[in-house]
C-alpha cells in the first residue's frame, strides 16, 4: 500500500491507452457505425420510395386499364353502331333496289300490256275492218274510215 513510482507509471500507461483508443479504435468503429446507420436510413428511404413508386405504378396501371376498357367499350359501341348502320344501309339499299326492280318490272309489264293493248287494238281494227268488209262484202276504203276505226279501237 505504499505510494511509489507505480503512480506515475500508471498515469503514463493510462494516457497511452487513451491515446491509442482515441487514434486507432474510436474513429474506425464510429465510422463503421455511422456508415451503417446511413446505409439503413438510405435503405429505408429507398424502400419507402419504392413503395410510393409501386403505389403510383399501380394507380397508373389501374388508370390505363380503365382507359383501355373505356376505349374498348367505345370501339365496340362504335362497331355495333356501324354494324347496325351498315345493316340499315344494306336493308335500305335492298329495299330501294327491290322497289326499283319492282317499279321497273311493273313499268315493263305496263309497257307490255300497253303494247299488247295496242296490238290488240290494231288487230281489232283490222278485224273489224275485215269483218265489216265481209259483212258489207265490199271493200271499204280503209282510208276513208280510218277515223271511225281508230275511234272504235280507242274504245276497246
Amino acid at each position: 500500500m505504499n505510494i511509489n513510482l507505480t503512480l506515475i507509471g500508471q498515469s503514463i500507461t493510462f494516457l497511452f491507452f487513451v491515446w491509442f483508443c482515441w487514434k486507432f479504435v474510436w474513429p474506425p468503429l464510429l465510422g463503421v457505425m455511422k456508415e451503417r446507420e446511413q446505409k439503413i436510413a438510405d435503405g429505408l428511404a429507398d424502400a419507402e420510395h419504392a413503395q410510393k413508386d409501386l403505389e403510383l405504378a399501380k394507380r397508373k396501371a389501374a388508370e390505363q386499364l380503365k382507359a383501355a376498357k373505356d376505349q374498348a367499350g367505345e370501339i365496340i359501341d362504335g362497331a355495333n353502331k356501324r354494324a347496325n348502320q351498315i345493316l340499315d344501309e344494306a336493308k335500305q339499299a335492298a329495299q330501294s333496289e327491290g322497289d326499283r326492280l319492282k317499279a321497273a318490272a311493273k313499268a315493263e309489264i305496263d309497257q307490255e300490256v300497253n303494247r299488247a293493248k295496242e296490238q290488240l287494238r290494231s288487230r281489232v281494227a283490222d278485224l273489224s275492218v275485215l269483218g265489216a268488209e265481209k259483212i258489207l262484202a265490199v271493200n271499204i276504203d280503209a282510208k276513208a274510215h280510218d277515223d271511225l276505226i281508230d275511234k272504235l279501237a280507242a274504245e276497246l
Partner: peptide, 24 residues
Amino acid sequence: FWALHVDTLGWSIGLGLIFCFLFA
C-alpha cells in the same frame, strides 16, 4: 517512492493491451 509495483503495472498494461488489441 522510487519503487515499482511490477504486478500492478504488469497486469494493468497486459489487460490494457488486451483491450487495445481486441478493440483495434
